[in-house]
Amino acid sequence: MKVEIFALGCLLTVAAAIEVNNIQQLEAAKKGNDKVITLKNIQVPAGQSLNLETNLKPGTTVEFAGRITFGHQNWDGPLVRIKGKNLNIIGKPGHVIDGEGHRWWDHKGQRGSKKPNAIYVQLENSKVNGLYLKNAPAWGFSVNGCKDVDFTNINVDNKDGHTKGALNTDGFGIAASRNVKIMNSRVNNQDDCLALQSDCDHIYFDNNVCEGGHGIAVIGGYGNPKPITNIFIRGCQVIKNNIGIRVKTMRGGKGLIKGVTFDNIVLKDISDTGIMIMGNYYNGGPTGEPTNGCPITDLTINNVRGNVLNNGTNVRIVVASDASNWKWNSNVQGGKQKRECKGMPKGVKVPC
């Protein structure tokens, strides 16, 4: 429906909007002609996704308002599913997407009972702005198959999980995506702040704050052998994580990591390792000798600085002989435990 307002001698056209207050109204709203759909104080039944995937027309704005909640059930999720083209997804002031993760947390993460991931996103030519996700049971944002999408001012707030048994609550997981930007956002969680995996190109992670988790990770050679290329992680703060930044490939894995840049990264009170570049990940940790097959090339570490706590390690590197063309400029201090550094390309000076 088109709404026309006559003001000061001018005829103004305002996009029609509809407010959805229960899940039963949602399908009709998506099929209507309203350009703005406001989801307010919705309670989503257990075992069901808030479906912003089917029948959502290009050009639609979806607003989250009030408190969005979900019934409890042990399942994979996601709690919210967003898919489409030319969409504008907005979090209105005061809203919260409340996963109430404490109902699932058991100190075991993926090894415990089934826990739903929170928000699955598969968008093209779209914007996601201002969403506040609180206490996700498992992963926060699963970004998969996205192209030309901007995420700005996102808040993934799982700080309650530090004392209530949360685990494997990654902030942003990205795979199979092109030209995705995550900017001016904050993650407080119990796993990777950013977990960037295979088949990604031109991903930008700018001016974000990561607190309490496992740092920023680029992960190659895990399952899908498609390459990871042109990754820019810039102007971020990593605070009280166990790892600051890392690039890791799986032992025996295939693929390519090329053109990863970490620039102007501040590390604060890192407990384990400030900068970690590893080619021997297996069963959840570094094990044995690194293998060729997923080379780390054109890696730039520039102005990565800050502190590691006394029992930690400033820099640790274990990579195979196919690593090449690295540029390194870091100043990470404080860690007293020296760990191995081997496999760096010739001519690269790393302060291990």
Rank of each mutant, 00 (worst) to 15 (best):
M276H: 03
N168L: 04
A166L: 06
N144L: 14
N303Y: 06
I119T: 15
K147N: 14
S142C: 05
L299Q: 08
H202P: 00
Y120V: 03
L79G: 07
D272L: 13
I182T: 12
V3Q: 06
I228A: 08
N242F: 08
G77F: 04
G244F: 09
N280I: 13
V14P: 00
H72E: 15
V180N: 06
G293S: 08
N314K: 09
R305H: 13
W328K: 05
V143A: 02
I182K: 09
G293N: 07
G221V: 03
N230Q: 13
H202V: 09
I317N: 00
V187L: 10
S271K: 11
V218A: 07
A118C: 15
T291P: 11
E211R: 12
N331Y: 08
N311H: 08
G112A: 09
G109W: 01
E289D: 15
T163H: 09
L11E: 12
E289N: 13
N179A: 07
R234V: 07
N168Q: 11
N310I: 03
W75C: 10
S321V: 15
W139N: 10
K2W: 00
F205A: 07
K57G: 02
I296G: 04
Y282M: 10
T69R: 12
T249Q: 01
P286D: 05
R316I: 03
N51T: 05
T300W: 00
K159W: 05
A65H: 02
M1P: 06
K254N: 14
V304K: 01
I219F: 06
T163N: 14
Q25E: 15
L196H: 06
G94Q: 08
Q333E: 09
K85Q: 13
N135P: 00
H95Y: 05
D272F: 04
N129M: 02
N144K: 12
A65W: 01
I97R: 09
I89N: 03
N179P: 02
W326K: 10
N311Y: 03
G274T: 03
R103C: 06
D269Q: 14
N184P: 04
I245C: 13
E63S: 04
D160Q: 10
A195Y: 05
K92R: 15
P290A: 02
G253N: 10
G253S: 10
F262T: 03
G112F: 03
I265F: 09
L194F: 13
G94S: 05
K240V: 07
G140Q: 06
H214W: 11
G130L: 04
Y281W: 13
N310W: 00
P45Q: 04
G334P: 02
K164L: 15
N311T: 14
K240L: 07
I37A: 11
A17R: 10
V247S: 01
F64P: 08
K346N: 14
A166G: 12
W105H: 08
A7W: 11
T249S: 06
M1V: 11
C146M: 08
D201Q: 14
H72P: 05
L50M: 01
F232S: 14
I257L: 05
D106Q: 09
G285N: 11
Y120N: 12
D76K: 09
G285R: 11
V308E: 09
A217E: 12
